[in-house]
């Protein structure tokens, strides 16, 4: 056990790796991935049923002790996000909701304004609201005031695996937000996740990089190790950067 825990709403977690259920070649891999990664929170989406392709119930792949985090993907407005959130809560029994409002189909950029509007409504209704955002400090502070349980800035566009492209902006959130900062989207390698944790992110959410790996279970484990390593590095205080060399050995002469 560890006393270094992540608090979201009224729940406490020992894992700082959130995972997603999208893009797995076989949903049967999800439970093994969850076990290997130690992830305690996993996202799911809500969609109209497809009568042609009868798919398995994704919820059957997720153990009871893992917290479901339904997302509002598919929503293009705050109103739609609120509607999806209410259905998701009633249908799944969880208060957790990841707000995802996207109007831009090419880059899948979150619409910060609609996301704030949805957060204001849902937090008042008792949801544990985790908004997916572009890292923007004034917005993050507004979300905090509106009752968001965390903020989830993107590292890079969804599914791109490009890593922490927004690093300086995320650093501002980490330095100034009272609520946890969870880096979501774009983390393609365990080293990206470690870097996010080293800079003080409270957690990361990884879906594509794990789900589309050749071996998602082992990749889940790799991300778990990286997140723990990054967190420990952050807690132990990183060294300072310098433009010049700083000798590690004594500079006194020897043998002359």
């Amino acid at each position: 056990m560890t006393d270094d825990t992540l608090q979201l709403g009224n729940k406490t977690f020992t894992s700082r790796l959130l995972t997603g259920t999208g893009k797995f070649a076989d949903n049967a891999l999800i439970s093994g991935m969850l076990e290997a990664s130690g992830s305690q929170i996993i996202t799911v989406a809500l969609r109209r049923i497809d009568q042609q392709s009868k798919t398995d119930n994704i919820l059957d792949s997720i153990p009871q002790n893992v917290t479901l985090l339904p997302n509002t993907s598919g929503a293009r407005t705050a109103e739609q996000a609120v509607r999806i959130a209410r259905i998701a809560r009633a249908a799944s029994g969880t208060n957790f909701i990841k707000i995802e409002v996207i109007t831009d189909a090419r880059y899948l950029m979150p619409d910060n304004q609609e996301t704030l509007a949805a957060t204001e409504i849902l937090a008042k209704e008792g949801f544990i609201v985790l908004p997916y955002i572009l890292p923007d400090l004034p917005l993050a502070k507004r979300l905090e005031s509106a009752g968001a349980a965390a903020v989830m800035p993107l590292g890079a566009p969804i599914g791109t695996n490009r890593g922490l492209e927004t690093k300086p902006l995320i650093a501002m959130l980490i330095e100034n937000c009272r609520v946890p900062v969870i880096v979501d989207a774009g983390l393609g390698l365990p080293s990206h996740a470690a870097a996010a944790m080293e800079m003080g992110a409270d957690a990361v959410l990884v879906n594509t990089a794990i789900a589309t790996a050749g071996d998602p279970v082992t990749m889940g484990k790799a991300f778990e190790l990286a997140v723990r390593a990054g967190r420990k590095a952050y807690l132990s205080g990183g060294g300072q950067c310098s433009d010049q060399a700083v000798a590690s050995s004594p500079l006194t002469g020897f043998l002359n």
Partner: peptide
Amino acid sequence: LELLNFVGGG
């Protein structure tokens, strides 16, 4: 009527 189900998503 909306007939929905939970699916994989990130």
